[in-house]
Amino acid sequence: MDYSLVVAIELLREVAGLILIATGLAVIFGMMRVINIAHGEFMMLGGYTVVLTTKWGVNIWVAILILAPLVVGVFGILVERLIIRHLYGRIIDSLLATWGLSLFLIGFVTVAFGNTVEGVSTPFSSFSVGRYSIAIYTLFLIFAAIAFITSVYLTLRYTKSGLIARATMQNPDMVESLGINSKLVYMATFGIGAAFAGLAGGLLAPISGVVPGMGALLIGKAFITVVTGGAAVVAGTLSASAILGSVSQAVTFATGPVFGDATLLFVALILLRLLPQGITGRIFTRSV
């Protein structure tokens, strides 16, 4: 009984982990069709923001929940202005440019802050489930993932800016003719996607440790989740994370992490063979 509860919490945690790392990418890739290879490095910047500002005496929650998304969001807007806006509609070029950006960010952070900076320790303690003990931070990550998805859903579905964003992605010329500056919409969307990446990096910093190359460990799973999910940001991320996360984590429990990771790739392969447009290309097509 205790064990099944522990397994359930860990399954949820893996699903939540995928949601956290994929939401920012889903916003940028799903809505703007820009492949941001530097997404992992955006998360790394979020992690560094938390590590450095807490070292300077900032409260850890302020660092994670406010500074990390703020810094990376502003940085994202800069990147959009300087690089991405020249490359809309040119998917391969944007891929190459953001790959270059990713290498540059790794190099820059290594030179500026070194390959080793002291991390932050995980806030909260742990609680017991029978003879198991689990970090309270694990539950916090699950709630953060729920908050991620809910906020994106509510914004896109029920606010005017969400409506404008969706309209711009569908038909920018029509939106322009209605008097809305589509460039601003793109800029804001990219900035928000980057802010989600920064927040994810900040949330993961206390449990994963922060190094310049950490983005590379996260980007693969983030992309697989977004591509498997398909075009709809919320329904896609949610369904892909739920399927991939729970199946791979269940296999990890049964056999170990090697087969867990392999299963994640295998399930994604099958899903994409059956649903080349992603899950939301066929199912939940009317969702956001």
Partner: peptide, 10 residues
């Protein structure tokens, strides 16, 4: 490249 050790810790 494994970063999540939850299952192992359990």
């Amino acid at each position: 490249d494994v970063t999540n050790f939850g299952p192992t810790i359990s």
